[in-house]
Design a protein around this nucleic acid. Structure first.
Length: 395
DNA sequence: AATGTGTGCAACCGCCTGGAG
DNA sequence: ACTCCAGGCGGTTGCACACAT
């Protein structure tokens, strides 16, 4: 026998609310506010438990509730949010003014789920449901061949395969960004970072020390670029470091790509500025990444992160150093790889050698070619809206 | 008209979390 | 450190209604 509910224990009323009960609850809340829900029934003269009152108020009586059908915009929004958040109805409802989690949950279960299934889309993954027809097999074979062709471009690759735990979402609500970490021993990490973009309270600030950046991403042996994330809803995700070089972005300009599917025609664009130490001082406050505030006094990089067809490139240009290099990230055989394609005047490349990722200086005038590197994911927690992907290498 | 079936929605149930004592 | 309790959440249930047979 299961636990008795509070209503059973206290012999309270259950079931549908009568208009009289609604009136009592509404009058009480509008006059006195909510306060403590457990005391509301008594004060309002209701034979209900506090939980029941709370639910009735939130889902039905609250004056700011939007009634009626969901608009097509709301429907699209719910689909988008569900793709990112899953069945986190309360979080979804928080993005839809006037709608309750219960309402959205019901709408999803009764309409949207069926609609997606009709379209051949898995409502859980939001990806096409694969059916084992000949046609589908052909398509998969093509994808496989395409993947292998990509892999062949990485002729110097000797890395060992790992399970692809790396996942980037191709929805606009996610952003992806990356950077370089390096300690005093010049041990470096490149990270990719993912976060929900639409959350107005969440943003990142990346910082690093060192004033001698030239070529590549950073070539300063003492550079120390670390991440700070500010997210009041997820305080555990906050971390800050001693660093100086700012690396921040405007949330409205970033989104993500899905590497879990080679055929995904996902696309992302991301613009951000790298600034030198002097500029960073101006931007070290917790401002919301207004890029125009980031003046540059020496080193200034405009980066474009572009994702298309499950690959993205990362352009770095530096007017003063005549640097223009591009990183490409692709999923190949279930792994995410990066390569740097440097134009003349570029001075640094990442490459993989003997199972380790190496950074080398390169002054070749010609196009360098590709230097495959393996990105591994250190951690991913899909239950959290943000996580990091890091690969280590030594230069 | 009676009965069966499907659907949408309001409400409940049980679990989890965080704060107070 | 522990217990208790309120509030929040997602999953589930059950009722009312519409429609089909």
């Amino acid at each position: 026998m299961g636990r008795h509910s509070c209503c059973v224990k206290q012999k309270l009323r259950k079931g549908l609310w009568s208009p009289e009960e609604d009136e009592k609850l509404y009058n009480h809340i509008t006059r006195h506010g909510v306060g403590c829900w457990s005391s509301v029934p008594k004060l309002a003269g209701l034979q209900r438990c506090g939980k029941s009152c709370r639910l009735r108020w939130i889902n039905y009586l609250r004056p700011d509730l939007k009634r009626g059908m969901f608009s097509s915009q709301e429907e699209d929004h719910i689909l988008s949010l569900h793709e990112v958040l899953g069945n986190r109805w309360a979080q979804i409802a928080a993005q839809l003014p006037g709608r309750t989690d219960n309402e959205i949950k019901n709408f999803w279960n009764s309409c949207l789920k069926k609609k997606l299934l009709k379209q051949g889309i898995d409502p859980t993954t939001h990806k096409p449901i694969m059916i084992g027809s000949d046609h589908d097999v052909d398509d998969q074979e093509k994808k496989k061949n395409s993947t292998e062709n990509k892999a062949n471009n990485f002729q110097q690759s000797t890395f060992t395969a790992q399970e692809p735990t790396f996942l980037l979402n191709d929805h606009d609500n996610y952003s992806i960004n990356g950077g370089l970490l390096a300690d005093a021993n010049n041990s470096k990490e490149i990270f990719l970072n993912k976060q929900l973009v639409y959350d107005p309270f969440s943003y990142f600030e990346f910082q690093a020390s060192g004033s001698d950046q030239s070529g590549g991403y950073t070539s300063n042996n003492n550079s120390n670029l670390i991440i700070s994330q500010y997210h009041p809803h997820h305080p555990s995700l906050q971390f800050e470091t001693n660093s100086n070089l700012a690396f921040s972005f405007d949330q409205g300009n970033v989104s993500g790509a899905d590497f879990s599917d080679n055929s995904a025609a996902s696309r992302v664009s991301c613009n951000f500025l790298l600034n030198d130490q002097a500029a960073t001082k101006e931007s070290s406050s917790n401002s919301t990444s207004n890029m125009s505030n980031y003046s540059s006094t020496g080193f200034n990089q405009m980066n474009n992160l572009v994702v298309e067809n499950a690959a993205f490139s990362w352009d770095i240009s530096d007017d003063q150093n005549k640097l223009n290099s591009m990183f490409q990230f692709q999923q190949v055989n279930g792994m995410i790889k990066s390569e740097e394609m440097s134009t003349p005047m570029s001075s640094s490349c990442w490459h993989e050698e003997g199972g380790q990722l190496l950074h080398s200086q390169n002054n070749s005038v010609d196009f360098i070619g590709s230097y495959p590197t393996l990105i591994t994911s250190l951690s991913e927690d899909l239950t959290e809206p943000s996580f990091d992907h890091v690969f280590h290498h030594i230069s």
